[in-house]
């Protein structure tokens, strides 16, 4: 009986109990998690090189709440379609070199580029080409470890069936938002910033290409307004200037930004008016922004945008 009270054996038994408890809980966790849509913790593991490093001018917390909707994969394409511009596959970034994009920075930037292209394809109901883009996005999203938010299977099914295009659009945009939110909350706002920059760059490229082939005052004005958006974007990018990749990107985008220097935007003030349309509350803004942009300036913006965008997507 004496051996039952041996302190060493008691410690061993206590340790076995603890290990057993840990195993049971771990197994339980694994069993329950493996059935869900989200992936296991291993897949959330982030390599050190893609977590924000260095001192940020603006804290990571503030970066998480910074201006959203800087550029949407949908809005620029909708504008282009509303002007009755024909669809052109030439405006899309090629997807054949996705596997060559090996750094998380390149992958995040191209995620934005392809998200904008997917928006363009969806707006024009070009579901046949959608598969290439969702495949490219899935590859890149997995590369930056946000693939769990991209519902590739459902998107592929919707694109192949050419039905339920609203769902295709919703899931595409929602997946992109989820990836963006996750990156911000995971202290990887640098990658979120690159995604947003990619969307913006491709949106501007689309608008300028349409302006080049099919000039329209409305599109010229939207391009001129990018001066305001670019100021916001550069503010965010400047936050990461200490990083070599971002420094180079800022340098490239500054070439476009400089082109906007003599674009003038004036605001006519007015009070918003609330009206009821078909039983719905509609607010009509009475502040109006007006853009002055010369043809020469527009042409140089078109030229520089093409040059920089093509350079960035070839990197």
């Amino acid at each position: 009986m004496l051996h039952l009270f041996n302190p060493q054996q008691q410690i061993q038994r206590a340790m076995i109990k603890r290990i057993f408890a840990l195993l049971v809980v771990s197994l339980l966790l694994f069993a329950c998690k493996s059935g869900g849509e989200r992936k296991t913790e291993d897949e959330f593991e982030v390599p050190d090189d893609i977590v924000n490093e260095g001192v940020l001018e603006i804290s990571e917390e503030v970066m998480q709440n910074i201006v959203q909707n800087i550029s949407s994969p949908v809005e620029m394409a909708s504008l282009v379609k509303s002007l009755n511009a024909d669809f052109s596959g030439k405006y899309l970034a090629p997807t054949d070199k996705v596997d060559d994009l090996t750094t998380s920075y390149q992958q995040a930037f191209h995620l934005g580029i392809y998200a904008a292209d997917l928006g363009y394809l969806n707006i024009y109901n070009k579901t046949n080409s959608v598969i290439d883009y969702i495949t490219a996005i899935k590859t890149l999203a997995d590369g930056v470890r946000v693939g769990q938010f991209f519902d590739f299977t459902t998107l592929k099914r919707l694109a192949q069936s050419n039905q339920n295009l609203d769902s295709l659009m919703y899931i595409s945009v929602h997946s992109f938002n989820q990836m963006d939110k996750y990156l911000r909350s995971d202290n990887r706002s640098n990658l979120s910033t690159l995604m947003v920059t990619g969307v913006w760059m491709e949106g501007l490229y689309l608008a300028t290409q349409v302006a080049k082939s099919d000039p329209h005052p409305e599109i010229a004005e939207r391009i001129g307004e990018q001066k305001i958006i670019m100021d916001q974007l550069m503010l965010i990018l400047e936050n990461y200037r200490s990083d070599k990749y971002f420094r180079k990107l800022i340098e490239d985008l500054t070439i476009i930004k400089d082109e906007f220097d003599d674009v003038t935007i004036t605001i006519k003030k007015g009070e918003p008016v609330a009206i009821e349309e078909d039983g719905m509350l509609v607010i009509v803004q009475k502040d109006v922004s007006m853009v002055e942009i010369s043809d020469d300036r527009l042409n140089s913006i078109i030229e520089k945008t093409e040059q920089i965008r093509n350079k960035l997507i070839s990197n």
């Binding site: 307004e225 918003p272 509350l281 607010i283 009509v284 803004q285 109006v288």
Partner: peptide
């Protein structure tokens, strides 16, 4: 203030409102 889903003066509530934007900005 441009718009609200709740008008406190009348107590009227709306599940949504539309905003016709005339000025690009934040």
């Amino acid at each position: 203030l441009q718009g609200s889903t709740y008008i406190s003066s009348t107590g009227k509530e709306f599940p949504f409102f539309d905003f016709k934007c005339q000025k690009t900005g934040v």
